[in-house]
Structures are given as C-alpha cells and as structure tokens.
C-alpha cells in the first residue's frame, strides 16, 4: 500500500521529477568536484609545506658548542622532524655541483658558513608558523641568517585560503539552490496530488502513512540526486583529466557523504514545503 502510493506519487510528476534530479545532480556534481579539488589542493599544499626546508646559516666564528646550542634550540620547536648540520666543505661541494665549477679556485677560500637544514613533519607548519620561528631563530647569537621560500609559501597559503572561500561560497549556493529545487518538487507533487491525498484521507489512510510516503519520496530523490552528482563528478574528472586513473580522495566515505548530504537536504526541504502546502485537511476544510 505505502510502496504503491510512493510510486504513484513519483509517477504523478515524472517530467518535473526527472528535471529536478538532473538539475540537482549537476549542482551536487559541482559541489563534489569543488570539494575534491579543494581537498586535492589542500593535500598538495600541505605536502609541499612539509617539504619546506629552513636553512639556518650560522656565524663564521661558530664553535661546536654554538652549533650544539642552536641544534638544541631548534629541536625543541614544535613540528621539527629532523635537522642536518652541513659543514662549509659539504655546502661548497653542493654549490660547485650546481654551478659546475669550484668557487674556492676563484676566491682562494671557502666563504660558506656552517648551516643547519631543518625539515618539518607533514601538516605541522604553515607560512605563518615558518615566519614566526625563523624570526625567533634569527635572533639567536649563533645564527647569522635564516632562509626559506617565504614568498612562495605565502602565495601557496593565499591560494589555498582563496580556494576554501570559493568552495565555501559554491557549497552555500549548491545547498540553497538544491533546497529550492527540492522544495519546488515537493510542492509540485503535493499540489498535483492534493485531491488524491484528500480522497485517501477520506478513505481513512492513517496520517503516519502519508508522512512515511513523503519521507520515502524525499529519501529516494536525495539518493538519486546524490548518486547522480557522484556519477557526473567521476565523468567530469575522467573527461577533464583523462590521464587520471583514479580520482584522488573519491573514497567510499566521501561517496557515502556525497549521497547522505542530498538526502538530508531533501528531508529538510520536505519539512519546509510541508510547513506551507500540507495544511491539515480537517482543520482547513480544503
């Protein structure tokens, strides 16, 4: 009985139902893609940040005690994963390998100081943090200069933040638009079936059965729209990046959430539409 009425309700506005599902599916695909792109960028950004290296150049007259003191201080900083001491000879070898000639032949001496190469744990630092700790390290007596790719990291940070904001705005628009689509669909079906529901009530259908039928319809619409969103997202990613074999972060958990969220929105929209259109038959006399 309930299944039959549920199915009849869907069939009663099949064109509107399909239109709503396509529109909502495209919206959810947009939202899913934006989230996946943001997660990918965010992950890429934290990976790059974790690979950030802080180069601490020590003063020329540094002693072993000075090196140890600087190492102890830097080790105590949060997020530091490892640190290597580079002596002037090793630094010169590295530079010669890059430049293709030995600078000591030209200068007659090795101008490079002792330095510390500091690496961080993944996700433990951002541009602000690096800026803060590099300033702190630079104030120490045994330190001459601290270098890191600050401008590049700042830009990466700005790009990530901007992406978060754009994704947030996009998601808000997706939520508002999908609510509008779902509310319109519920209202349309309710209006179209007003006489049927009135007559079913006169035949004595229990009110809870009508609620269950409406909820089943909302859940069905949410599941199909959410699944369509995930399907379209996969299709879009495959079309846009045909070299991508697997879409990063499109896990089972993400898929479940990408379907559960539209179901929730469809249920909320049912509440919104019920507030106005499903007035009590007996109270209103409609």
């Amino acid at each position: 009985m309930i299944l039959g009425e549920f199915w009849r309700g869907l069939k009663s506005g099949i064109v509107e139902l399909l239109s709503a599902l396509i529109a909502a599916g495209l919206l959810f695909a947009l939202g899913d893609s934006a989230i996946l792109a943001t997660i990918t960028l965010s992950s890429f950004s934290s990976e790059l940040k974790s690979e950030s290296v802080l180069e601490v150049f020590l003063i020329d007259e540094i002693t072993q005690d000075g090196i140890d003191s600087a190492k102890t201080y830097i080790s105590s900083l949060s997020g530091v994963s490892n640190m290597t001491v580079k002596d002037p000879e090793a630094a010169m070898d590295e530079m010669s390998a890059i430049l293709g000639s030995d600078m000591t032949d030209v200068l007659g001496f090795n101008p490079l100081p002792f330095s510390l190469e500091v690496r961080f744990e993944p996700g433990s630092c951002d541009a602000d943090y690096l800026n803060r700790i590099s300033s702190g390290i630079a104030l120490r007596d045994e330190v001459m200069e601290v270098q890191y790719a600050s401008e590049w990291l700042d830009n990466l940070e700005k790009l990530t933040r901007t992406t978060y904001i754009i994704t947030g705005i996009l998601l808000a628009l997706v939520i508002i638009s999908s609510l509008f689509i779902f509310v319109s669909l519920h209202r349309h079906i309710s209006t179209r079936r007003r006489d049927i529901v009135r007559n079913l009530r006169l035949l004595g259908i229990p009110p809870q059965s009508l609620i269950v039928i409406s909820m089943m319809r909302a859940i069905f619409v949410g599941i199909i729209a959410g699944a369509a969103g995930v399907g379209i997202t996969i299709l879009l990613w495959k079309l846009c990046c045909n070299y991508v074999v697997t879409i990063p972060f499109l896990t089972t958990g993400f898929t479940v959430l990408a379907i559960a969220a539209p179901v929730l929105l469809a249920l909320i929209s049912l509440l919104i539409s019920a507030g106005r259109s499903q007035s009590n038959l007996f109270a209103s006399g409609s």
Partner: peptide, 12 residues
C-alpha cells in the same frame, strides 16, 4: 486526533 479520525473514516 488525526489518527483517530482516520480510523473513524476507515469504517465509513
């Protein structure tokens, strides 16, 4: 209530 009314109408 709505439930009792539905029950009443189901017998009519």
């Amino acid at each position: 209530n709505a439930r009792e009314r539905a029950w009443m109408l189901s017998g009519w």
